[in-house]
Nucleic acid binder design. Structure first.
Lengths: 247, 247
DNA sequence: CGATAGTGTCTGATATCCCAGACAATGGAG
DNA sequence: CTCCATTGTCTGGGATATCAGACACTATCG
């Protein structure tokens, strides 16, 4: 425990609320975070005053407030990745008429920073600010492929499971990542959303570390223009690297 | 000051970082938040451990981290507005081929929750998680128009200024809001971004309070299909009301 | 290069925050 | 309706978090 426990606990509270798809009861917070109930009320009170939490008295529950949401705007401004990546991704999506996103690796997951939806395409499961396990997504695989073996071991938790909780073979992931390393392209086909496939390309920094990945999501049909997508996606990732890191 | 000052201060820290477009030095945090320097380092340390802040040693500055960004995903999930509004806005944007957004009123500002960019349209100034003064935007005007006079007085700070810092007449805003009230439509023309205009319609709850506004941004030319935009926008706002609040 | 200002880390005494617990209010089930 | 569980609010003493300050390190400027 840190030297500023109240500060740490309020951050744990926000993280907890963000992980829940529904507003949460104070007693659940106390139980799940292992904090005294009265302390939780204090934290909720101060977080409410500051706009990070809203109390829903009718439901006797708490949810994140506008100030929590607003951090995303600040993050996006401070992060060159999102700021420089967005217009490039927008152009790519306009050209290909398929939806795309920019994601970063965060622990064992990918975190989606930018999403560009193409016309007549559904909103993606990869909503901004949402996480998915890296090993299940094209973006995640592209980035994992670019890590050193030690980094990869640290990033990927065992045992591996699919999106539905079934076991997944490490050898299968290993083979996919080897292919991604060789071709520069990572793929995902129907594993996140049936009927949809994705291609991902890592955006590497000067040290070869995957700072991000760009991906395009398309219908998994036989006539999908995979070669076109692959070459445009790769060119866009290279351009983003150039803008971010110089070349 | 609250009964949990460390919790409050770490939230103030996050708010401060979110308000800065660039990473920030610890000494600036201490100075501007009026906190002891050593306390700031403690807060930054715990926020870093929890992923809410990242330290950029090369610049000797601090920025928001991925956990801060991730709160936006949680917020969007918990908020029916964003969840139910996004697909409706997506359809509207696909139909009109113009970009649109969904915003809420927060203090004197609008806060953008959802943005849908149309093909070949620029990324909007109204990036998600960003604020603009309500009185300058179509969404904000639509919502201000729907407030009671007392609520409006509380929401709109005087003196009014334009985006470039010039004075703006309260009588002019008053006239615009009266028109918006009469027609159900609020407009903004070149004031946020030269050459671009927006139309906004408020989404009212059962008590007639503006829970949100939908807006469409388009080129401010004489041949813009304003009537088409107006009727589609209004229909979408009514549908969102129906889905959120029943009718 | 040296001087200076700023950054980061650490310390410890004392003021204050945190926790356990009590009580009031509310909601739901039988 | 009563009973019980849950939610929300409040209290106060002792453990500990906080603040002022010291020191080491780093970057910049003349």
């Amino acid at each position: 425990m840190s030297s500023v426990p109240a500060a740490e606990n309020v951050l744990r509270l926000l993280t907890y609320l963000a992980a829940h798809r529904r507003p949460v009861a104070a007693s659940a917070v106390a139980r799940d975070l292992g904090l005294p109930r009265s302390s939780v009320y204090h934290l909720l009170a101060v977080a409410s005053e500051r706009g990070f939490v809203v109390h829903l008295p009718a439901e006797r529950r708490y949810a994140l407030g506008p100030a929590a949401f607003e951090l995303s705007g600040g993050y996006a401004s401070q992060q060159p990745l999102a700021r420089l990546g967005r217009p490039l991704l927008a152009q790519l999506v306009d050209r290909l008429r398929e939806s795309g996103h920019l994601a970063v690796l965060h622990g064992a997951d990918v975190l989606y920073l930018v999403e560009e939806r193409a016309p007549r395409r559904p909103s993606l499961v990869s909503d901004v600010g949402v996480r998915l396990p890296a090993h299940l997504t094209a973006s995640g695989r592209a980035m994992l492929a670019a890590l050193s073996p030690a980094q990869r071991r640290a990033a990927v938790p065992l045992p591996l499971v699919t999106r539905h909780g079934d076991p997944m073979s490490p050898a299968r992931l290993h083979a996919m990542l080897a292919t991604a390393r060789r071709t520069g392209l990572a793929v995902e086909d129907g594993e996140v959303t049936p009927g949809l496939a994705s291609m991902g390309v890592a955006v590497l920094d000067r040290a070869g570390w995957p700072a991000a990945a760009l991906a395009i999501t398309f219908r998994a049909s036989d006539d999908a223009p995979r070669n076109e997508i692959a070459s445009q996606l790769t060119a866009t990732a290279r351009e983003l690297e150039r803008r971010l890191f110089g070349s």
